[in-house]
């Protein structure tokens, strides 16, 4: 149907586009096919350099790994202790972040929040702040002479710094923004009209959150929790400043790695590989759930027309 009518009706525009002055317009085209323009080439090279910057260090790490002694190195009580501490504290951190972070994200996602931009800025600051500074700040708040710490000490005899609790607090400080911002994004993406429907059906805001909104954003929450956990697992600066470096109570794997670099480099490498494996495993597991998490798919199929 297109052939006779279309060519008959509009010969001028199609003709002009398809056959330019013979030779003149064609050569650059063929040229473009054979060799990409310089700009594209430069972009490609820069992209490869970028990827290399990310991947090559890890390649070097894996190349230096003493695979044969791996089991012995990792089974060392000091390593096992640090790993257990890391997993437990990062787990606690993720739990704390979920409990307080999801409500915070929910508040941030509301458009009617007065001064919402300010709250969002405050949430974002720890994200851009050097973790060491976070550690110093925590110390000034909760240290023995700190703003709150002095009260805690005189009233309850509680000292937070240099305990496992301090490790968790340091990790929460750096990891919470990741969770809050991820979940906030998911909440904003969730279809608000479904929440309105739920309201017309007699649901209170809390009920809507529990049975409509949260299930819809579950994949986003899972992604936020994964980011939060891996970030907590790798925390170094705030931890070493605020919680110190005591075996068993505050020496998490990153701290142990740093220490071992001087004394037992092989062990440092082994622990690094261990961290790499755990972190990647978390991301892969969460990603699998994300992709298989379906609500997103169903949501876009209908309702978004």
């Amino acid at each position: 149907m297109t052939t006779p009518a279309a060519t008959g009706a509009a010969p001028a525009p199609t003709g002009a586009g398809a056959s330019p002055p013979p030779g003149a317009g064609r050569r650059p085209n063929r040229h473009a096919l054979r060799r990409p323009p310089v700009g594209t080439l430069v972009l490609g090279v820069l992209a490869v350099v970028g990827l290399a910057l990310l991947v090559l260090p890890l390649v070097a790490l894996l190349a230096a790994t003493p695979w044969a002694d791996m089991v012995d190195l990792v089974a060392d009580p000091a390593v096992v202790g640090a790993m257990r501490l890391s997993l437990v504290t990062a787990g606690c951190t993720t739990a704390v972040c979920l409990v307080v972070g999801v409500p915070l994200a929910w508040v941030l996602a509301r458009d009617d929040l007065p001064g919402g931009w300010l709250v969002r800025s405050l949430v974002t600051v720890p994200l851009v702040l050097p973790p060491v500074v976070g550690g110093v700040a925590l110390l000034l708040l909760l240290g023995r002479r700190g703003l709150l710490g002095s009260r805690l000490d005189t009233w309850f005899g509680v000292t937070v710094p240099f305990t496992s609790v301090a490790v968790v607090l340091a990790q929460v400080f750096v990891a919470l923004p990741f969770l809050v911002l991820t979940v906030e994004g998911a909440l904003r993406g969730a279809d608000r009209r479904r929440a309105l429907v739920a309201e017309t059906l007699g649901a209170t805001p809390a009920y809507v959150l529990r049975r409509v909104t949260l299930p819809a954003v579950a994949p986003g929450i899972a992604a936020g929790a994964a980011l939060c956990f891996t970030r907590a697992l790798g925390e170094f600066g705030a931890t070493v400043t605020f919680a110190g470096n005591f075996p068993g109570t505050t020496r998490t794997v990153p701290l142990a790695v740093y220490l071992a670099m001087d004394t037992a480099p092989e062990q440092a490498v082994a622990m690094s590989v261990l961290l790499l494996v755990v972190s990647v495993a978390v991301l892969v597991a969460m990603r699998g759930r994300w992709v298989g998490g379906l609500p997103g798919r169903g949501r876009t199929r209908r309702g978004d027309r």
Partner: peptide, 14 residues
């Protein structure tokens, strides 16, 4: 009120 908005807007996960 018994409300059915345009496009149904079912809760997809239920």
């Amino acid at each position: 009120l018994g409300v059915a908005l345009q496009d149904g807007l079912l809760f997809g996960h239920l």
